[in-house]
Simulated assay, not measured.
Amino acid sequence: MIDDLIYFLRARYAEERQTAIERRMQNWQADVADVNAKQAVVDACERSTILAAGATRKITDMTAAGVAVPMVELIDAARLEGQATSLSHAVSLLAQPHARHPEYRQEWRPRG
């Protein structure tokens, strides 16, 4: 689900960048900088999600193999999962202005 939302937002931000540049608006550079800042959040979310999934997979593999999981591994996995969850929520909020776009999915709406 988050992968699809990340792809959706990347496509919208590419469109916004292009529109700002094509219009040759007086402050198009500020508009592009704003889009780039939002893209940085999307990129961080993707990285955190990948890292959290990797940590979870490592712990699962260790447990399945009967290997004791060090506490530091569990703490790191929990930290990464929390970070990924927070960033996923932020990305859901960034997608809200695009809620009327035909490719937007209701499942992407922020919870809470």
Rank of each mutant, 00 (worst) to 15 (best):
P97N: 00
L9G: 01
N27F: 01
A40L: 02
R79E: 15
R47Y: 12
R23G: 03
C45M: 02
Q96F: 06
S92A: 08
E81S: 13
I50G: 09
A40P: 02
P97V: 03
D4M: 05
R57T: 11
A64L: 13
P70A: 12
V41D: 00
L93A: 11
M25S: 12
Y13Q: 10
A65Q: 11
T19I: 15
D4N: 13
G112E: 12
A78Q: 14
A84M: 06
T19P: 00
R10H: 08
P102D: 10
V35W: 01
Y7A: 15
L87M: 04
Q18A: 14
H101A: 06
M71N: 03
L51M: 13
Q18P: 01
A30C: 05
A90L: 04
I59D: 11
L94Y: 05
A53T: 09
T60H: 14
Q18G: 04
P110L: 11
A99M: 09
E16F: 00
T49I: 06
V41P: 04
D61I: 05
Q29I: 02
K58Q: 12
L5E: 09
T49R: 11
R24H: 02
I59L: 14
A84V: 10
R10N: 06
A14T: 06
Y7H: 13
Y7M: 07
P70Q: 10
H98F: 15
R17D: 06
D3S: 13
Q29V: 08
N27R: 06
G54V: 01
R12I: 01
Q96T: 11
A30Q: 05
H89C: 03
L93V: 15
L74C: 12
K38N: 02
A65N: 10
R10Y: 06
A55S: 10
V72R: 08
Q18C: 09
Q106P: 00
A99G: 07
L93P: 11
W28S: 02
D4R: 13
L94K: 05
L74N: 14
V69T: 11
L87C: 04
W28I: 00
N36A: 14
A33D: 01
H89L: 14
M25T: 13
D76I: 12
I75W: 10
R10I: 07
Q29W: 05
L93K: 13
V69F: 05
S88W: 05
T85G: 07
M1T: 06
R100Q: 10
A68H: 09
L51C: 08
R111I: 15
E103M: 09
Y7N: 10
S86R: 12
S86K: 11
D76V: 06
A20L: 01
V67P: 03
K38I: 04
H101F: 04
L80D: 03
V72M: 09
A33H: 00
P102Y: 08
D61P: 09
N36T: 09
T63W: 11
H89E: 14
Y7I: 12
I2W: 02
A40T: 00
I50W: 04
W108C: 14
Q26N: 06
I50L: 10
S48P: 01
R79P: 01
R100A: 11
Q26L: 09
R111S: 13
Q26D: 10
G82Y: 07
R105T: 05
Q26R: 07
A30T: 02
A44G: 07
I21N: 01
I6H: 08
A64P: 05
G112F: 15
G54M: 00
A11R: 15
R109P: 03
E73A: 05
Y13M: 15
